[in-house]
Design a protein around this nucleic acid. Structure first.
Lengths: 354, 354
DNA sequence: CTGAAAGCGCTTACAG
DNA sequence: CTGAAAGCGCTTACAG
């Protein structure tokens, strides 16, 4: 258990490479950045020597000098249940492609997001992208003020100059309602999920509004979380209704609850889609599995991520933010959020009209 | 489309804070690091002024001076299918707790891992942790040589001085075999997955060896990937066997394939566990869902992650690496990998002997 | 307890 | 085309 003193290993620097290649330290820098004049053969030699030594420019030091390290802060939460993991996966892939390094800030729960937003500042990243929790206007303001970008994925940024993009949740809810009404269903239910969840609330709103406009009043069931277990519990409640009073059309604001709802009904004499139609949201991979074949909505993740990256890019060029014209199926909300239409994925939990 | 010139915003620095608080710049630094003497009230004042201005020490600059930014490189791949996402989630959570910032290196496929390992060097992190692909000895060597740590999760590091920890895959395979033999099953099959996948191959080996030792010779089916679709295809092949020649005991080297295998058998007159027993690996959340209730193995992710962090910590203290005595259920392999026993999760796809 | 100064490892004008 | 020098924003001995 003898503990050696904390000795610092002297780092290999561009100076060591310069010495070995018999040039000035400045030339080593030029060889790697490509900036400034340098003879082709000198460059070759330097690169070769550096490779032998195993040296690469220190990105931290370079970032300090240029004031612009290719770093981006990403705020995320627990990656359980698929959808969040998909979002992160797409983002990471895009950053890798655009040669930016994501620095991850992980929130155990949504309340920690605000604190992480503050932590973010120490790293002088190009900007921050938020994929979890709620955003306070002042936080976005503080970050934008520094010249950093600020992007929110699937949530409002609560700031005019920030970029926010999300699935058109109200539209999805309305589409679900219309689909169910077209089937001639009568009694409607929505598994609304979190009372203070933004996306879930928007989906619920779109659904309820569309139904009311047609003279229907749906049941709205809220819950503390949006898991498969919650879905099952909802099924239990559903089964307590007299058979002739049970809802015939169920929209779940996410797939997890829809899957659980389905499971809770198995072996209970209820047939989907004969007795009721069920629609989910997210298009989780599990929704396509044999025992489910759930009709659901796919969120336009590719589009959203690519637009975030265009925003980041345009912010960098300082040409006044995302001047990109809104592609098909997008609209700009009053809340400055760019909304992208979800895609209906028809499977077997609704009556087909193929 | 008029593009403003790329004007650099002058950064707010500790000097600005010093001026505002009427102290030297050095004191501002002391107020934040806690190193060096400083009067309590001076410190308070500086902190207050800094908060007003919204300044925090630039972690990049600090890292350069101290030669030790709290950065760690994490190599990961596509987060699809749950298990990888779980691994990353646990790691991120642990890093957040230990005040280290993960810099993510994302590989689209396993072949890219080697390149990412090289990219890693530019960032002068405390070390790197690999959760995807194969590791070349030279890569680990190059990193360790710099005084960085090197950890491999669920794969061998191929280097004596690196730290590698993994589920005891051969043990899992053997446990599956013993369980199935105890049921009195006769014809054995293993969905072996990737031919060159390390974990899958180890699970297969443990299974096959245990069976052979008891005089059984199992069928071994390899595949190009390890998805639910592959599992389904295996079911199709299975169904082509005459009924009295079909395997009665199936071990799948991951849950995804097991789930697909199950799905492929639905409605085909085969009963699980009456006609055959099925065991998976990973304990994906889906394995516990109503239509599956799959018997499987849980990988000791908590243990593995916490040991990785202890290694990182001990590496930092330079007390000669992980001197931590191996906890229960662990063994050190010839390959310098620390193996942790998986936990059998009994559900309904095996004959119970409750 | 406080301040002036050196230095971390780079990049980039500025001379030559 | 090349080199010497300044400077990025900090931390940490070193004096006082």
């Amino acid at each position: 258990m003898n503990r050696a003193p904390l000795s610092k290993i002297r780092a290999v620097t561009s100076r060591d490479v310069a010495r070995a290649a018999n040039v000035s330290q400045a030339l080593v820098s030029r060889a790697f950045t490509g900036n400034g004049r340098i003879a082709a053969e000198t460059r070759e030699r330097i690169l070769k020597v550096a490779a032998e030594i195993g040296w690469q420019p220190n990105a931290l030091a370079a970032g300090m000098v240029t004031g612009d390290a290719p770093l981006v802060a990403v705020i995320t939460t627990r990656l359980s249940f698929d959808w969040r993991a998909q979002v992160l996966s797409h983002l990471l892939s895009a950053f890798q492609e655009w040669h930016m390094k994501p620095l991850l800030f992980y929130a155990e729960s949504d309340d920690e997001v605000d604190r992480l937003l503050v932590e973010t500042i120490a790293w002088r990243t190009r900007g921050v992208i938020v994929t979890a929790g709620n955003i306070a206007h002042e936080r976005a303001e503080a970050i934008l003020e520094r010249g950093q970008f600020f992007a929110a994925l699937n949530r409002p940024a609560n700031h005019q100059s920030a970029f926010a993009i999300a699935t058109d949740n109200p539209l999805g809810g309305a589409m679900a309602a219309n689909l169910l009404m077209a089937e001639g269903r009568r009694r409607y239910l929505v598994l609304a999920g979190l009372r203070d969840g933004w996306a879930a609330a928007e989906r619920t709103r779109g659904y309820v509004d569309a139904l009311r406009a047609a003279g229907h009043e749906p049941l709205v069931w809220h819950s503390q979380s949006m898991t498969i277990e919650v879905g099952k519990e909802c099924a239990t409640t559903f089964l307590e209704f007299p058979v002739d009073q049970r809802p015939e059309a169920v929209f779940s604001t996410n797939d997890a609850m829809a899957l659980g709802f389905y499971d809770g009904l198995r072996g209970r004499g209820v047939s989907i889609p004969d007795d009721l139609s069920l629609i989910g949201f997210d298009n989780l991979s599990a929704s396509s599995w044999t025992p489910y074949q759930l009709t659901t909505f796919e969120q336009p993740l590719d589009t959203m991520v690519s637009q975030v990256l265009h925003y980041i890019d345009s912010h960098r060029r300082e040409d006044g933010g995302a001047a990109v014209p809104a592609p098909m199926g997008q609209r700009l909300g009053d809340d400055s959020v760019t909304y992208c239409a979800p895609t209906l994925i028809r499977r077997l939990t609704c009556k087909g009209q193929a």
